[in-house]
């Protein structure tokens, strides 16, 4: 098969490694990390625009390197080609190799913030996004100094605590080792950051197999949603996480 993969750049190293071993020819387009920060509507627009740029005569299917990502994928409409989407709430599912493992880890580790190579080296400067992010609209990304200049010292202290210090409920950094790292520099950086924040540090072994199955064309319906041409992705918030819906008037399908 000839496949087109549209992926968040957070998977840059993982996707490159998986594509290298795929039996198929896979062309990859990476989109900027942090699209979820512009809101579901903006993210869906970017994902749809990337899909609409795909030449339908050159490929057999379009793959997405995304999870549901705060509903950023909901509403995405397949055009002339089937679209394949992993069933996952967000990228952690793809790093851990499956939604069950993610659900299990999530339930037992509240307050965890994750790091991988892509988290650390990609998308440092989200200015690359053309639309203003939620963070910039709400003021969440402002420094104390900026807030103080605009609202005065007393107000700035309050706003900083309420709005900017958004990780106050987190208590752990988990580094997911994917086997694509050159050495221990990313793990070390994560460990140092945990130390600075006074958080617990943990390293877990990631699992490239879900990403590999995506690019290998092994699309078991429990793990992947295959959206027929003309159909669109809808969020389900159940075990399956997402489903496909036909254009109005046709029969529903899961």
């Amino acid at each position: 098969m000839r496949l087109k993969l549209i992926s968040c750049e957070i998977f840059y190293r993982e996707i490159r490694a998986a594509v290298a071993r795929s039996p198929h020819a896979v062309d990859v387009e990476f989109l900027p990390k942090g699209l979820h920060d512009i809101g579901a509507e903006g993210m869906r627009g970017s994902l749809q625009a990337a899909l609409d740029r795909v030449d339908g005569t050159r490929y057999d299917a379009v793959l997405y390197g995304y999870g549901l990502c705060g509903n950023g994928l909901a509403g995405l409409a397949a055009r002339s080609l089937p679209v394949v989407v992993p069933r996952g709430h967000d990228c952690i599912t793809l790093f851990l190799g499956g939604k069950e493992r993610y659900a299990d880890y999530f339930q037992n580790h509240p307050g965890v913030y994750f790091k991988t190579t892509g988290w650390i080296e990609r998308g440092q400067d989200l200015q690359q996004l053309h639309q203003p992010s939620i963070q910039s609209i709400t003021g969440m990304n402002r420094s104390y100094e900026e807030l103080a200049a605009k609202y005065g010292e007393d107000n700035a202290r309050y706003l900083y605590e309420e709005l900017v210090n958004c990780r106050r409920n987190y208590q752990q950094l988990t580094f997911i080792e994917m086997g694509v790292e050159p050495d221990d520099r990313f793990e070390r950086q994560t460990q140092e950051e945990a130390g600075r924040r006074g958080w617990k540090f943990e390293k877990v072994q990631g699992d490239l197999s879900l990403i590999q199955r995506l690019v290998d064309g092994q699309w078991d319906e429990r793990e992947f949603l295959v959206v027929p041409p003309g159909w669109r992705v809808v969020a389900r918030y159940d075990e399956g996480i997402i489903a496909a819906e036909p254009p109005l008037g046709a029969e529903p399908h899961r």
Binding site: I137, T138, G139, L147, K150, Y151, N155, Y158, L159, E162, L163
Partner: peptide, 11 residues
Amino acid sequence: YFVPELLLAAR
């Protein structure tokens, strides 16, 4: 008004 103004007024 944006979120900071809302928060400050509410406070």
